[in-house]
């Protein structure tokens, strides 16, 4: 090696380029974007709380038919939960069935096409679902609603006088079920597809039929995934606005278990959409407060879903 006295200085010059500045700026930008998501979420909570605070204790006339916020919100929450839970009761068996078909029954090309079609269902705007539910599905389901009332009317759910238009909780739940089917199916499909091949083959090697293989290898492995998919679907159903607004003939917050009558509970979201357009600023404030309740409630449901997933992931490890 022939080191001259000037060379190290020269090398040092070229080796200490200024590339780090660009990196720092870009890193900062990326970080800021991530942080802005934090700010936005906090903002949703804070601004709803600030603007809606007055809504928790507004003039009693605003809480028709109740007189204070708590029963008002509880009534709305009841309607919201009732419709959403019914929707999930209808949707989950279908979602599981479709997901099983896609992962374990259909040949590949067919499976791809059907998966695409189911995804397409998620792309149909909710207002279109609402109009269709109102004008097409509702009338078509009327005979079924009448039949249920006639033959199973002794069950409280089906009791009461059947709505003449069919715009009932029953119909709303079915429309919502159709709308949440894609997301729940997608998640079930993912977990079904992840069943260890080894377990499946172990079952088949023992002489299990396809259903037995699914029952003993696929379903136990996927239980938490099905729950997570259900919860996510539930989160969607809780927040769905337009379809419910259009399909359901709601008469404000109320608690009733009748699913087939024309006197139905409103949901938080549909109640907001129904009344927010008016010029009554005080009522808008109350509605903002109920929006906060909905936000917190869906947040809890989604969080529960995450918790279920994380807990079962731990169990697997």
């Amino acid at each position: 090696m022939n080191l001259t006295t000037t060379e190290p200085a020269e090398v040092s010059d070229t080796l200490s380029g200024g590339s780090q500045r660009g990196d720092r700026v870009f890193h900062g930008l990326a970080f800021a974007a991530g942080a802005s998501i934090m700010v936005a979420l906090a903002g949703v909570f804070i601004f709803l709380a600030i603007r809606g605070a007055a809504g928790f204790s507004a003039a009693t006339g605003l809480y028709q038919p109740y007189t204070s916020f708590v029963p008002y919100a509880a009534g709305l929450l009841f309607g919201t939960a009732l419709v959403a839970v019914l929707a999930m009761i209808i949707a989950v068996p279908f979602a599981v069935g479709v997901a099983l078909f896609l992962t374990h029954y259909a040949p590949r090309p067919l499976s791809t096409v059907i998966a695409y079609l189911i995804d397409l269902l998620a792309a149909v705007p909710s207002v279109v679902f609402g109009l269709w539910g109102l004008k097409a599905l509702g009338p078509a389901l009327l005979p079924i609603q009448r039949w249920l009332n006639e033959h199973l009317g002794f069950i409280p759910f089906f009791a009461g006088e059947v709505s003449a238009t069919g715009r009932t909780v029953f119909l709303a739940a079915i429309v919502l079920a159709i709308m949440v089917l894609p997301i729940t199916t997608a998640i079930c499909r993912e977990v079904f597809g992840q069943t260890p091949r080894l377990h499946e083959e172990a079952a088949l090697a023992l002489g299990a039929t396809r259903w037995e293989m699914i029952r003993y290898a696929v379903l136990p492995h996927s239980r938490s995934g099905i729950i997570a998919g259900t919860m996510l679907g539930l989160g969607r159903a809780l927040g769905e606005t337009m379809a419910v607004l259009l399909v359901l003939n709601a008469s404000g917050p109320k608690i009733t278990w009748h699913l087939l009558t024309s006197d139905n509970p409103a949901t938080i979201a549909s109640n907001i959409a129904q009344n927010f357009q008016g010029e009554n600023i005080d009522l808008q404030v109350v509605l903002l407060a109920t929006g906060l309740v909905l936000f917190v409630f869906t947040f809890l449901v989604n969080f529960a879903a995450r918790w279920v997933v994380i807990r079962s992931e731990r169990k697997f490890q």
């Binding site: 090398v11 080796l15 200490s16 380029g17």
Partner: peptide
Amino acid sequence: VDGQSLYDPSVDPVAV
């Protein structure tokens, strides 16, 4: 490398 330590704090890895 020829008298310059690569892991010197003043050295820019990108230039290296």
